[in-house]
Structure formats: C-alpha cells, structure tokens
Amino acid sequence: MKVLPLPVDSPHAATHPSSDRPSIIILLQEVQEKHGYLPRQEVIRCAHEAGISVAQAYGVASFYNFFKLAPPGKHTIRVCLGTACHVQGAQGLLQQLQSELGIETGETTPDGLFSLETVACLGACSMSPALVIDGEVFGRVNPRQVPRILGRYRRRE
C-alpha cells in the first residue's frame, strides 16, 4: 500500500473574477431602457454577464427605486411630493397608499393593477395634497379616502 499526498489543485477562484466585467448597474439600466422594466430572465442574464450571483444582481435591482421589477400596472398612481403637497401631509398620503397596495414607490401590485410613483409638482398646488391616477387628478386627498379612490378603479375590473 502506498499513500502519496498529492499537491492540492488550487486554481484561482474561478468563481467570480470581477474587474474586467461590466457593471451590473449599467447592464440593468440598458435592460430597463429597452423593456421599461427588468424582466426576470434579463436580471439573470445581467448577473451572469457581470460575473456576480443572481442574488447580488437582484439585491441591486431591488434596492434602487428607478429599477422597475415588474411591468407598469394597468393604472399608474402618481403622488405629488412637491413643497405645497408636502406641507399638506403628502407623506402620510403616500404611506397610506403603500400600505393599502402592499407595495413601495416604484413597484407594481402583484395583480398588475396599480403601480405607484411620486412626482415633484403636479401644478395643482391649490388642491394639495394631490395625486393623479392615469391623468385624473384627485385634490385635497385625505389618507382616509384612499380605499374609496382605489375601490373605484378596482370595481371597474
């Protein structure tokens, strides 16, 4: 019986050489420009191209608001966060919408019905706080009215 310790193969970690790879942010931006959002398949492709894990790529994609992880919803809600609206409690309104819809700004509800965005000023300062759904303006919105407003769009389905 002969037992020889072999030299251990220690090839450099082939796992993820990174320096010469394109940046994941740039790759994702290209995809978003082309599709308007980040299709799942494309996030996976970008991860491979950037030489990082899909988990890392998705971490980046889900961190930044400007990346959309789902196609825009049927109805787009834009909440005004301009100065006048801010003073009139736009934050509370936004939070109410977020919890009512179960999504963050920049996301789409799982049923594909609503996406939520914010804007700087709608030019409707006299009606602050204001929001717009598909071009229809709602002024002096009290957070308590949110369920009723959403209900109108939900019922139309």
Binding site: R40, I44, S53, V54, A55, A57, Y58, G59, F63, E104
Partner: peptide
C-alpha cells in the same frame, strides 16, 4: 459556502434577506 442563494433585497422598511426574484 459559495452557494450565493440569498441576499439582502429591497430597502428601508421592507429590506430583508431573501433568495432573488421573489
């Protein structure tokens, strides 16, 4: 482990550990 199954996802109040793509 070099499995890379999970990561931090989202931000703020909804940040958590999760596998990618929901």
């Amino acid at each position: 482990q070099a499995v890379e199954a999970i990561g931090l996802v989202r931000r703020g109040m909804r940040m958590q550990v999760a596998p990618p793509l929901g």
